[in-house]
Computed example of a mutant assay.
Amino acid sequence: MTTVARSPNMTVHEARQRLQQERNSRLTQLSAIEAGAAPADGDLATARTAAIRRVLTEITAAEHRLTGDTYGTCQGCKTRIPVERLEILPYVRCCVRCQQLAA
């Protein structure tokens, strides 16, 4: 089995599966929002839709990193992102420390 770059406890296959699960979940959320948005909820629905679309963009970027063999490497400090973090947020770009510095 091939492992994700610098993340020896997660295979490429597992990473792809997690990313696909995230994509499917977000697409389901997006469909529900678009189908059920009442006119009074317009601003809230727009904000939720925008947030989901941002996550979908992050998922696509993570798939590119997986193909480019940089998945699992922090884009800030270039260290390995802990597998536990990737399991929770499979599309994450940075380690916790760099994420906090960026915020």
Rank of each mutant, 00 (worst) to 15 (best):
A102S: 15
C94Q: 15
L27A: 01
A15M: 12
T11R: 04
C95R: 06
K78V: 02
T60H: 14
R97A: 15
V12N: 11
L66E: 08
R23G: 00
R48S: 13
T57G: 09
R23A: 01
Q17M: 09
Y71E: 01
E84H: 09
G76F: 06
L89K: 10
S25N: 12
P39I: 01
D69L: 10
Y91M: 05
E84Q: 08
E63Q: 14
T73H: 02
E22W: 06
S31W: 08
V96S: 09
T28M: 07
Q29D: 10
C95G: 08
A40Q: 13
Y71G: 00
T2L: 12
G76A: 05
G68R: 13
K78H: 14
Q29H: 07
L56P: 04
R16T: 13
A50Y: 12
T49M: 11
S25A: 10
N9Q: 09
L44M: 12
A32Y: 11
N24K: 06
E58D: 15
A35N: 14
V96G: 03
M1R: 10
G68H: 14
Y91V: 00
R18F: 04
A61E: 10
D69H: 14
N24S: 05
T57L: 06
R54L: 09
A62T: 05
C98Y: 06
D41T: 08
E58C: 07
L101A: 12
M1Y: 11
A61T: 10
C98D: 13
C74V: 01
L86R: 01
T46A: 15
T60G: 13
A35M: 11
V55H: 05
L86S: 00
R53M: 08
N9Y: 06
R18T: 04
T79N: 11
E22P: 00
C74L: 02
G72Y: 09
Q99C: 04
V92K: 07
T28D: 10
T28I: 02
D69S: 10
T3I: 09
P90W: 07
R16L: 14
E58G: 03
P82D: 07
E34T: 13
L19K: 05
E14G: 04
D43I: 06
R6I: 00
L44H: 08
A45N: 05
L101T: 11
K78I: 02
T79S: 10
I33F: 07
Q17G: 03
V55S: 05
A40H: 12
C77M: 02
A51D: 14
T2G: 02
A38D: 11
R18H: 08
A51G: 13
C98V: 06
